Simulated scan of single mutants.
Amino acid sequence: MSYAYEGLATVGVLALYRGQPANKLTTLKLNIRVRNVDPKRFRIEFDRYLQGPKEANAVQVVLPGGLLLQGPIVDGSNQPDGGWLLIDVEQYELPSEPPANLNGWKWE
């Protein structure tokens, strides 16, 4: 089976629980391999231990070009020499520029 993507990506590992603030640890320039398991499920493989918050339950992967894969962790393994995560995802294209009309909202 071939990979849908192989190369560097930004990977955020999150602990998201109702009633608690989100906890996220991001790894920049992580060498990954993404494999399509089925239309809404991906397997992300990596070659080193992936840092994340205790009791992480979700992941975000930003690929070069702005494709964002994110979703809950279904299964996985994280060892000192690498591992994998199986996630249910929805794909999003990140915009290259902010929208023209933000109705007065801006990042402070």
Results as ranks from 00 to 15, higher is better:
Met1Gly: 13
Met1Gln: 06
Ser2Ile: 03
Ser2Cys: 00
Ala4Ser: 10
Gly7Glu: 05
Gly7Pro: 04
Leu8Pro: 01
Leu8Asn: 11
Ala9Ile: 04
Ala9Lys: 07
Ala9Leu: 05
Thr10Arg: 15
Val11Phe: 06
Val11Cys: 05
Val11Lys: 08
Leu14Trp: 03
Leu14Ser: 13
Ala15Asn: 14
Ala15Pro: 02
Ala15Leu: 01
Ala15Lys: 12
Leu16Tyr: 01
Leu16Thr: 06
Tyr17Gly: 02
Tyr17Thr: 08
Tyr17Met: 02
Arg18Phe: 08
Arg18His: 09
Gly19Cys: 04
Gln20Gly: 01
Gln20Pro: 00
Pro21Gly: 00
Pro21Glu: 12
Ala22His: 05
Ala22Tyr: 04
Ala22Lys: 09
Asn23Ile: 07
Asn23Ala: 13
Lys24His: 01
Lys24Asp: 01
Lys24Asn: 04
Thr26Tyr: 03
Thr27Val: 14
Thr27Gly: 03
Leu28Gly: 02
Lys29Thr: 00
Leu30Ala: 14
Leu30Phe: 05
Asn31Ser: 09
Asn31Tyr: 00
Val34Thr: 03
Arg35Gly: 01
Asn36Phe: 03
Asn36Cys: 00
Val37Ala: 03
Asp38Cys: 12
Pro39Met: 07
Arg41Cys: 12
Arg43Lys: 15
Arg43Met: 14
Arg43Gly: 00
Glu45Asp: 15
Phe46Trp: 06
Arg48Gly: 03
Arg48Cys: 07
Tyr49His: 14
Leu50Asn: 09
Leu50Ile: 03
Leu50Pro: 12
Gln51His: 08
Gly52Arg: 11
Gly52Trp: 13
Gly52Asp: 09
Gly52His: 11
Pro53Cys: 07
Pro53Met: 05
Lys54Pro: 04
Ala56Ser: 15
Gln60Thr: 13
Val61Gly: 11
Val62Lys: 12
Val62Asn: 00
Leu63Pro: 07
Leu63His: 10
Gly65Leu: 09
Gly66Trp: 14
Gly66Asn: 10
Gly66Glu: 09
Gly66Val: 07
Leu67Glu: 15
Leu68Arg: 15
Leu68Lys: 15
Gly71Phe: 09
Gly71Tyr: 10
Pro72Arg: 15
Pro72Thr: 08
Ile73Gln: 05
Val74Ile: 15
Asp75Leu: 10
Gly76Ala: 07
Gly76His: 08
Ser77Gln: 14
Asn78His: 09
Asn78Leu: 10
Gln79Ile: 01
Pro80Lys: 08
Gly82Ala: 12
Leu85Thr: 07
Leu85Asp: 03
Leu86Glu: 14
Leu86Pro: 00
Asp88Met: 05
Val89Thr: 15
Val89Leu: 01
Glu90Leu: 11
Gln91Thr: 05
Gln91Arg: 13
Glu93His: 12
Glu93Trp: 12
Glu93Phe: 02
Leu94His: 04
Leu94Ser: 14
Leu94Ile: 02
Leu94Gln: 14
Ser96Thr: 15
Glu97Leu: 13
Pro98Gln: 08
Pro99His: 06
Pro99Tyr: 09
Ala100Ile: 05
Leu102Asn: 06
Leu102Gly: 02
Gly104Thr: 08
Lys106Gln: 14
Lys106Pro: 02
Lys106Val: 06
Glu108Phe: 02
Glu108Met: 05
Glu108Val: 04
